[in-house]
Every structure is written in C-alpha cells, then in structure tokens.
C-alpha cells in the first residue's frame, strides 16, 4: 500500500512550487509592466468636491477637506455638493453613501452673491473674504460680484459691515431651463394619467 510514496509527494510539491513561482513571476511582471498611473487619491477626491471653498466642512477650502477625507474623515460634510457629491465620493472610495451631516448646513439650490450697490460703502472686506476673487472693487469704490465666478459660498456675507450682500438663488430662464426626467411609472407612486406627468397648465 505504498501508493503515496514520499517521492511522489515531493514531486507533486515541487511541481506546484514551480507553477507558483512561474505564475507569481508573470503576475509580478504584469503588475509592473501594466501599472496604471493613477491620480493621487487626494486629487481625485478634490476633483469631486464642488470647489466652492466655502469652508462649511470646517476646513479652509476644498483641498484641505479632500486631504481630510483621504485621512478617513466622513464624506458627508459638504452641503454645497449635496447628496450627489456624497454618492460620487462613496463610489470613488468604495464606501456606503450616507446622508448629509446637517451640522455643516443643508443642501441649498445654487446661489450667487449679489451686492446692493447703492448701499456699498467700498470697505473691501468682502473682497478679502472671497476665496475665488470673484468680487471686483477698490477702497471707497462700489464693489460688484462677477456672477459667473461666484461659487455661492456665503463667505462675503458676514464680513460686510453694512449688510448689503444677499445670496440669491440662480433664476431659471429659457437659457438654463432643463428638461425633467419623465416621472416613471415603475418607480415611486403610479401616475396613470399622462397629463399628471406634466401638470395641467391653464
């Protein structure tokens, strides 16, 4: 009953070992040869953040928060990005999406700052506060917001000594109006009457 001789076991082990070495070498070579140069994770995270630089997350700007996330901070501290950003971050980092932490503020529609120009005293405080240099003006001259560059971060509102800065939601015009997705009969409640979808308009 010497079917399993020591010799055959050794041969088998040697064969396996050889196979392991060969495949290991191939895998090792492949991982070196076809290495994908990825962005550093911080940059990838930063790309997903809305870059409002508003500081609502408690960091002075988006990049520091990106670094924070890379070091394990929760991903739900960004109100301007809202749920979409949280989902994208969760996707990138392979985490469970979570709800926005309302300690840091709530998700609002996109806003822009608006200076009530006849009340502006030209103190330049808002200019210093703006993280993206989106306010134009000089000392004792009226200031104004470059609407296209304004991220709606809110930071200019507080420093204004005469409270002449308002955050206004971006108005819907025919230029930026968006088609809504058809309300699906599959998801959510059922809407069997087609006119319900669009809403009957007088």
């Amino acid at each position: 009953m010497d079917v399993l001789s020591l010799e055959s076991v050794i041969y088998a082990l040697l064969a396996l070992l050889a196979l392991a070495l060969v495949f290991g070498a191939i895998l090792g070579f492949a991982s070196e040869r076809f290495k994908v140069e990825g962005n550093p994770i911080v940059d990838q995270i930063n790309d997903l953040l809305p870059q409002t630089q508003c500081g609502q997350c408690g960091h002075p700007g988006c990049k520091p928060y990106a670094e924070g996330i890379a070091n394990g901070e929760p991903i739900n501290k960004c109100p301007p990005g809202g749920q979409a950003t949280i989902n994208a971050l969760a996707d990138l980092l392979d985490l469970e999406p979570m709800a926005l932490d309302d300690e840091h503020g709530e998700e609002k529609p996109p806003m822009v700052a608006n200076i009530r120009e006849d009340e502006c005293i030209g103190c330049t405080k808002c200019i210093q506060a703006c993280p993206v240099d989106a306010i134009l003006g000089a000392a004792k001259q009226m200031h104004t917001v470059i609407t296209d560059e304004c991220t709606g971060c809110d930071l200019c509102v507080e420093p204004c000594p005469v409270d002449c800065i308002d955050m206004v939601p971006i108005a819907t015009t025919t230029q930026n109006w968006q088609w809504p997705l058809p309300s699906s009969s599959e998801q959510s409640g059922m809407q069997l009457i087609a006119t319900d979808k669009q809403g009957e308009v007088a």
């Binding site: 058809p182 087609a194 006119t195 669009q198 009957e200 308009v201 007088a202």
Partner: peptide, 8 residues
C-alpha cells in the same frame, strides 16, 4: 382655457 402640455 386649459391647454395640455406634453412632450413630443
């Protein structure tokens, strides 16, 4: 008058 709005 109520006009119906629908998508094309």
């Amino acid at each position: 008058m109520a006009l119906i709005r629908q998508t094309s």
